[in-house]
Design a protein around this nucleic acid. Structure first.
Lengths: 349, 349
DNA sequence: AGTTAGCAGTCAAATGAAAAGAGTGCTAAA
DNA sequence: TTTAGCACTCTTTTCATTTGACTGCTAACT
């Protein structure tokens, strides 16, 4: 994944204070209205007590420096991607969250859930409800987890269920069907065998050549072991389930009046591969922001994505991504994520 | 759900043979091109060797009878909903399936799956791939099923997993967490107890007042039984998962160039309630067609929906729905569904 | 030096008139 | 019963014009 550098890391010339205020005002105004911002519109706003001509000069400067764009010669300004990046890195208010929102988040997070994935889903739903953006979420990456226990349960005469429990509480189960009857004795042997060999090992061990671990037993009862290994491998290799929340919300945004954008959006959400890439990017921080062309995939060039590694302590509980227009309310999104992250770690999940 | 009557059941005046051919040609041409069909366009087509003027007269008649519409005074004709209905009931070719398609379906259905829901999902995917429409699918309704076995498996010290197996092979599992340690003895007791009381009962028994069945034991160890009952009830009461396939395919159709339609479509797919209604309608036949306003919900008035009760023998395996424009290729859709249905029942699933 | 008023210049979006094109309905003849 | 022919209707496209919102620049002001 492309490493996104902070402005300061890129050695940008610092903007003076008034320029910062102008840039911030333009970004925020544009986030609110989705219309190019004119010099006149800014004269009234937050503490910018200058005439439109002065603002115009500042805007011309900011444009020359690459922070602003024009849609045509005589239009107002819109933030460039560099402008958004500067805003996110330097000007953002990461405590942009109201008392009502805090209450709402608290009440949602009090819901009792029994499985990790449900917690991630619940968090994603909450974020979507508060920010009104579309969220996607995925469970924890299973490669890093350790196998705590494997249980085999006989169901009927020709079916067993394998349940794998990992150290961070993930439970994975799958069903294995056989062509002949299975005895309780066989299930017990299998149970013993797998736990003996695999307990404490990382989950990805199973993806590798298990024969090393189970060679002797393979010989012993190949027609029982083989289907089990195959099925477990298959389940672990399977794509993670991706949960989507609030896809329709995006369609109320003005940028989705462009059919091309709308189509692109549906396409992205419908392409698992893209979603996975999106969620698996950004290992550096817990919250990562990708603006427009900062996204690796061309299909995402019109969107901004904020990913949020959902963890309690050091336990990875999954990743949540927000996808929206570049004109996303970064302050709100990041504030909500930070608050939830803090909340989860305070209460211990 | 609204009962959709066949034309003949409604006592329609029969159309003479040439009118049928004209109507069929118009419907099929419109399904292909999405453009209003002119009298001229039909003169060349399948066996209609009449001048455009003759066709025009027939078209005027069909319009007067309500089978055709015009978009404006001097436009070609498009089928009305009544026209589509007549086509579906009387003119359809339900063997509109090529050798390649048969091969493709066969190869897909040979994939080994271990769970019912996976088979339904696989079938839905296959249908979507062949017809290029969006499909939604849902697992079997669980109320009618009988409990074959309930297993409780201890995971760690404070967690057990309950696995419910039903007579038609559905497996439902859920995790229960406790605030105190659980002993193997307790799990065994619970196992015995639940099976004793619930084996052979319909699954919906669990949704009712279980206390009747388990009263004595409730007293015996309320802090073990209660969370179990609560969690199992919760899982069974949960909405069924709905799987969506090929949402992006619809966006290539010309009717989705209208933002209103596109938005409506995303809205429908994003609203679980609507999807469930859609899939749970139509108990009369295995294949049900709802055209435009025949759909109960207003949101679906611009779409046609074909639902397909997926079963082997009498076992309900779930329902698959196709959602597309009213100008849907009904022949292809219904042919594919019929073929798959036959195939599944021949091979026994 | 920094700020502001004023005005010319630019471009998108809205408006409107005109022409082109596709199809129908009707009539009269075959 | 079928068909050729023509007038009529309505959409779509095109082009020119107007309107209005901004900016950039210059010159004056603090």
């Amino acid at each position: 994944m492309k490493r996104v550098l902070k402005c300061t890391e890129r050695g940008e010339i610092m903007l003076d204070d008034r320029k910062k205020r102008v840039l911030q005002a333009i970004v925020e105004e544009y986030i609110n209205t989705a219309e190019p911002v004119s010099s006149n519109a800014l004269t009234k706003s937050n503490g910018l007590n200058y005439s439109s001509a002065t603002i115009r000069n500042e805007m011309a400067d900011l444009e020359k420096k690459g922070y602003l764009d024009k849609t045509h010669t005589s239009s107002g300004r819109i933030p460039s991607e560099k402008g958004y990046r500067y805003y996110v890195d330097e000007l953002i208010n990461d405590n942009d969250i109201s008392v009502e929102e805090i209450k709402y988040i608290s009440s949602k997070l009090e819901t009792k859930v029994n499985e990790i994935e449900d917690l991630t889903k619940l968090t994603a739903t909450t974020i979507s409800e508060i920010t009104h953006y579309t969220t996607v979420s995925i469970g924890p990456k299973n490669d890093e987890q350790l196998i705590e226990e494997i249980k085999f349960v006989q169901l009927g005469t020709r079916m067993i269920m394998a349940v794998i429990l990992t150290d961070n509480g993930l439970v994975k189960e799958t069903i294995i069907k056989f062509d002949e009857d299975i005895t309780a004795k066989q299930v017990e042997t299998v149970n013993y065998m797998f736990n003996q060999k695999l307990k404490g090992k990382p989950l990805e061990t199973i993806k590798g050549p298990l024969e090393e671990y189970l060679f002797d037993e393979m010989q012993y009862s190949v027609n029982v072991i083989k289907p089990i290994i195959e099925q477990i491998k298959k389940v672990l290799a399977e794509d993670e389930k991706i949960y989507l929340e609030g896809a329709n919300k995006s369609f109320d945004l003005p940028e989705f009046n462009s059919l091309e954008v709308a189509k692109n959006f549906v396409n992205v959400l419908d392409t698992k591969e893209l979603m996975e890439d999106m969620l698996n990017s950004g290992f550096a921080q817990d919250i990562n922001v990708y603006i427009g062309q900062e996204n690796e995939k061309d299909e995402l060039k019109d969107f901004s994505i904020v990913t949020f590694k959902h963890k309690v302590g050091n336990k990875d509980l999954g990743t949540i991504g927000i996808i929206g227009p570049k004109r996303m309310d970064y302050s709100k999104v990041i504030s909500v994520m930070k608050y939830i992250s803090k909340k989860l770690n305070d209460t211990g999940g």
